[in-house]
Simulated assay, not measured.
Amino acid sequence: MLKKCMRYPSLIIPTEDIGIKDSLSYEEIHLPILDRQVCKLRTKEVVSVNDLWRNQFVEEATWEAKEDIKKRYPHLFKFGEVPN
């Protein structure tokens, strides 16, 4: 269990409940894409998508390149393109 700086023993959460691995990392789960935008450069256009991850609020969603997300999570793009 993680016990660093815990004043109250009742606040200690067993790592098995969270799914933390021995390397103190966990797998983040990708939720649906919220929005998309196109940034126009001089010679090309870069499409970005607004990603929401589990354990995040909507305000904390991040903008990432669509091609990077498509490589890592192809199941999000199975049924056509992301709506505008």
Results as ranks from 00 to 15, higher is better:
K40Y: 08
D35V: 03
M1R: 03
R54Y: 01
E59F: 10
E27I: 14
K70P: 00
N84L: 03
P32S: 10
A61Q: 08
L2M: 10
A61E: 02
I29R: 05
T15P: 10
R7Q: 02
I12D: 09
P9Y: 00
Q37V: 05
S25I: 14
D22N: 14
N84G: 01
I20P: 06
S23H: 15
N84D: 05
H75N: 09
A61L: 06
H30G: 06
R72S: 04
V46F: 09
D17A: 12
G80D: 11
E45F: 05
E16H: 05
E45T: 12
P74D: 08
K71A: 05
Y73K: 11
E45S: 15
P9S: 02
T15D: 14
T15Y: 10
L2V: 03
G19K: 09
N50Y: 14
C5H: 11
V38H: 11
D51I: 10
N50P: 00
T43I: 12
P9W: 00
C5E: 05
E67T: 09
I29D: 03
L11A: 03
L24T: 13
I18W: 02
L24S: 14
V47M: 07
G19V: 13
D22W: 10
P83D: 01
E60K: 14
I69R: 13
E16R: 12
E67P: 07
S23R: 15
A65H: 12
I18R: 06
E45D: 12
P74V: 06
W53N: 08
E81N: 11
F79C: 06
I18M: 01
K78D: 04
C39F: 11
P9Q: 02
D35G: 08
D51R: 14
H75A: 02
E59H: 11
E16G: 10
E27W: 02
Q56E: 09
G80W: 11
D17I: 14
S25L: 15
I33H: 00
K21R: 15
Y73H: 12
F77Q: 07
V46A: 07
R36Q: 12
R7H: 02
P14D: 14
P83R: 04
K66V: 03
L76G: 01
C5T: 12
V38D: 12
K70S: 09
I12Y: 01
V82F: 10
K44I: 13
K78T: 06
G19Q: 08
E64D: 07
R7V: 08
K44D: 05
L76D: 05
F57L: 15
W63R: 10
P32R: 08
W53L: 14
Y8L: 10
F57R: 15
K78W: 06
N84I: 06
I29N: 09
V58M: 11
G19W: 04
K44A: 07
E64N: 06
F79M: 09
K3M: 05
E28S: 13
N55Q: 04
W63A: 03
V47G: 02
K21L: 15
E81M: 01
E28F: 06
K66F: 12
P74A: 03
S10M: 00
V46D: 05
S25N: 15
E64P: 00
D35Q: 14
K3H: 04
P83T: 04
Y26L: 08
E27N: 07
E60S: 15
C39W: 01
D51P: 02
S10D: 02
R72L: 07
